[in-house]
Design a protein around this nucleic acid. Structure first.
Lengths: 258, 258
DNA sequence: TCCGCTGTTCCGCTGTGCGGTACGGTGCAT
DNA sequence: ATGCACCGTACCGCACAGCGGAACAGCGGA
């Protein structure tokens, strides 16, 4: 990651944050002063003062008789307000921009709404021929790379419900309309982590897409890179790594721990 | 709250934590250096250093061009690991103990599992005649104070589904078996915040119960205080405030923001 | 009971972070 | 366009906050 250097910092605070972070990484739920001091190469006195400070603010708690420490409810408060205020669109924006400049193609973001998918955002490259999607418009969940990328990571019964209720409507000559073919395709997507489409939803368009996961481990969105069929078709698989790096980053920001 | 004084603390860290907490309390998602400095009566220089320190650790993020700050994904990580490691039973234990000594009756904790409720924990008083419940045993959701306390705060369709699928089975002479009576009772419980029962589930027992809410605002558990009917019946409503203080505390620790 | 381990406190020196001030950039109102 | 007011950021010397080593206290196991 690009370590955009922050200016002058306060060592005491960085130490303190390291202690807090340790609680998140440790296997054990509770930590002792000596344990922490050893892990971070700090003196016991410092660790104790740090813990006392956090304790005063509810960030950590101390078991009264064992005198061991664990995270406090205040960190949950903070984490949840982070969640409240985070918006997939805001988080994905810079990544979409990066993807678009890297590939010189259109990068998109969509989310699921019931039995369909809707485009939330896109960033288009600065060139004449390019793909443009309709933001806010609903599209089916079985056609197009983004749709398949989401579908592949839904629960089996949700997929079944979709097939049953929505049906595999044909949009182009390439649209998958056989249930068997769809399940094979979804299995492939699951193993390699991304989906591709050449004209399945819209003739003349090719795209790669990958799912974005939320803090609860469920599919929160999908991101894609798409371009004109003839130009982009052969670059789909080469683009995948870039795309996956992007979805990983966005997922992480949404709290996904994969 | 009992301010169990922590020993010596580090002022710098407490200041830093205050800054972090401010992000959780502020109406705005993003904060500026000057804004924070004014709110906490700190110098701009200090606030800036604090933010830089947190930024280095991913606890806050800075918008590159507006240079305003917001919470970073690291706080979510921390909050979620807190959630992973928290167990309702551990959180409720000390509160159950307090309730039991305060009332000299039995305090219990139960959670819902599908169409029934199961006792997770109990603390009994030190006297001859007292209520004892069977831990791990399933009981219906419409009989007994704890059951009704949970039922009252479920979604309407969930209540309907329960009534339909499980039915209002009669356990004692006092059990509510009429759907209309049940709905009236649930409405009462919702307005006053707690449920009472005199022998509805078990003859000779009286209890008060209130729901515990989780971080998602949904019912996570129920806590009750119960005693022998003759002795405890007239103290039900007087006990409610103590109980409600307890459930509020436990709910808060589970991340409920009510 | 003793020992070895914990967590906690003490105290004087030191180096770190404080704050007033100065700087550069951005955006708004003129 | 231009000015200005406010923002965030960097500088620097002094004061004092926090560091570290060691001493203390309380537990649990041998």
């Amino acid at each position: 990651m690009p370590d955009d250097a922050p200016g002058q910092t306060i060592a005491a605070i960085e130490r303190a944050v390291d202690v807090l972070t340790l609680f998140g990484e440790a296997d054990d739920r509770t930590l002792g002063v000596t344990e922490i001091a050893a892990s971070l190469a700090l003196s016991k006195a410092v660790v104790h003062r740090i813990l006392s400070s956090f304790r005063a603010k509810g960030f950590v708690e101390m078991d009264e008789n064992s005198h061991r420490y664990q995270l406090g409810p205040a960190v949950l408060r903070l984490g949840l307000t982070y969640l409240d205020r985070i918006d997939v669109r805001d988080v994905a924006r810079p990544v979409l921009e990066r993807l678009s400049t890297q590939t010189q193609e259109t990068a998109t973001l969509s989310v699921r709404t019931g039995l369909s998918r809707v485009y939330l955002d896109q960033v288009t490259p600065n060139r004449d021929a390019k793909m443009v999607v309709q933001l806010g418009h609903s599209v089916p969940l079985h056609a197009g790379a983004s749709s398949k990328a989401m579908l592949a990571f839904l629960r089996a019964d949700e997929v079944a419900a979709y097939v049953e209720e929505a049906g595999l409507v044909r949009l182009t000559d390439e649209t998958i309309t056989s249930v068997k073919a769809l399940h094979e395709e979804l299995a492939t997507i699951r193993t390699r982590g991304y989906a591709t489409s050449t004209g399945e939803r819209m003739s003349g368009a090719a795209s790669v897409a990958a799912p974005v996961f939320g803090h609860d481990g469920k599919v929160a969105a999908a991101m894609s890179v798409s371009g004109p069929l003839e130009r982009f078709r052969d670059r789909l698989n080469d683009t995948a790594p870039l795309l996956l790096a992007g979805t990983r980053e966005v997922s992480a920001r949404l709290g996904f721990r994969g």
